[in-house]
C-alpha cells in the first residue's frame, strides 16, 4: 500500500475552515493565503501583526489568525508606525486598498515611507473603490467608467492615474519596492516570494518595504472574472507594469 504524503495544506495564517466572503474572481482570497504562507515559512505566525485598512481589504479581519487592529481609514501607515516602534521585534504589515492607501491615506503612506519605517505595506490596487460601490480611485485608468466617472475618467476633469510604487521610489528611505499580481500561478508564486522577501527584510531591520499587487475587481469593473483577467493583463499591466523598482538587497548600503 503506497504511503500518502501530504504536499499541500491550507496555511495556518487563515482561520481553519473559514470560507472567504470575497467576490468570485477577487484576488484578496489568494493574497491572504500567500501572506499566511510567507509568514508560516518564516516561522513568524505567532509574531505577526496586521493593520487593516478600510474597504474590501478590511474584510480580511474575519479570516486571519494573527494579531490585528483596524486603523481609521487611510491611517494604517501611522498606526503601523506606532505599533512597530513600540514593538520592534514584531512582524508588522499593513493591508490596504487603493482608496485607503492613495486617497484618504496618501499623507500617512508617504510620510511612513519617507521616514523609512521598518514595516511592510501590502497594497492591493484594483483601480477602483470596491466596498463603497465602484467610485473612481486615484489609480482608476483613463477612460475607465466608474460611478463617479460615468463617462469614463477624463484627465482634464479627474486627473491622471497615480503610480504609487513609482512615487514611493522617488523617496530616499524605502528599502524594497515591487509590483506583482496574482493572475497566473507563476505570478502568485512571485507575489508570495515578494511578500516573503519583504517580511525577511523587516525581520533583519532593513527598513520600509511595499508590495503593490495589481488585482481585478469583477464586481465593480462590471466584467466576469475571466474577462477581468483580460482587462487586467491588457490595460492594468500597461499602466502599472510589474517588476522590482528597488531592492536594497541582502546587505544594507
Amino acid at each position: 500500500m503506497a504511503e500518502e504524503k501530504k504536499v499541500y495544506t491550507r496555511t495556518k495564517g487563515i482561520i481553519e475552515g473559514a470560507v472567504s466572503g470575497f467576490c468570485p474572481g477577487c484576488m484578496h482570497s489568494t493574497i491572504h493565503k500567500i501572506i499566511g504562507e510567507a509568514a508560516e515559512e518564516l516561522g513568524q505566525l505567532d509574531n505577526l501583526v496586521r493593520v487593516e485598512g478600510v474597504g474590501c481589504c478590511g474584510l480580511g479581519q474575519f479570516y486571519v489568525t494573527c494579531d490585528e487592529t483596524i486603523a481609521a481609514h487611510g491611517r494604517a501607515g501611522a498606526v503601523a508606525t506606532g505599533i512597530k516602534r513600540s514593538s520592534p521585534n514584531s512582524l508588522v504589515y499593513t493591508y490596504q486598498g487603493d482608496g485607503d492607501l492613495a486617497a484618504i491615506g496618501l499623507a500617512e503612506t508617504l510620510s511612513a515611507a519617507n521616514r523609512g519605517e521598518n514595516f511592510t505595506v501590502i497594497f492591493v490596487n484594483n483601480g477602483i473603490y470596491g466596498m463603497t460601490g465602484g467610485q473612481m480611485a486615484p489609480t482608476t485608468l483613463i477612460g475607465m467608467k466608474s460611478t463617479t466617472t460615468p463617462g469614463g475618467r477624463n484627465p482634464e476633469e479627474h486627473g491622471y492615474p497615480m503610480h504609487m510604487s513609482e512615487i514611493i521610489n522617488q523617496l530616499t528611505a524605502p528599502y524594497y519596492i515591487e509590483r506583482v499580481s496574482c493572475d497566473t500561478p507563476q505570478n502568485v508564486i512571485k507575489a508570495r516570494n515578494a511578500i516573503k522577501k519583504a517580511f525577511k527584510y523587516q525581520l533583519e531591520g532593513k527598513g520600509y518595504s511595499i508590495v503593490e499587487i495589481v488585482t481585478s475587481c469583477p464586481t465593480n469593473w462590471g466584467l466576469d472574472p475571466l474577462k477581468s483577467l483580460d482587462f487586467l493583463r491588457e490595460k492594468m499591466f500597461a499602466e502599472y507594469p510589474l517588476g522590482v523598482f528597488r531592492d536594497g538587497g541582502e546587505k544594507k548600503q
Binding site: D46, N47, D67, E68, T69, S87
Partner: peptide, 10 residues
C-alpha cells in the same frame, strides 16, 4: 497587546 500571539490566542 497586538505584538503577535500563538495560534488561538489572537
Amino acid at each position: 497587546a497586538i505584538v503577535g500571539h500563538p495560534l488561538g490566542q489572537q
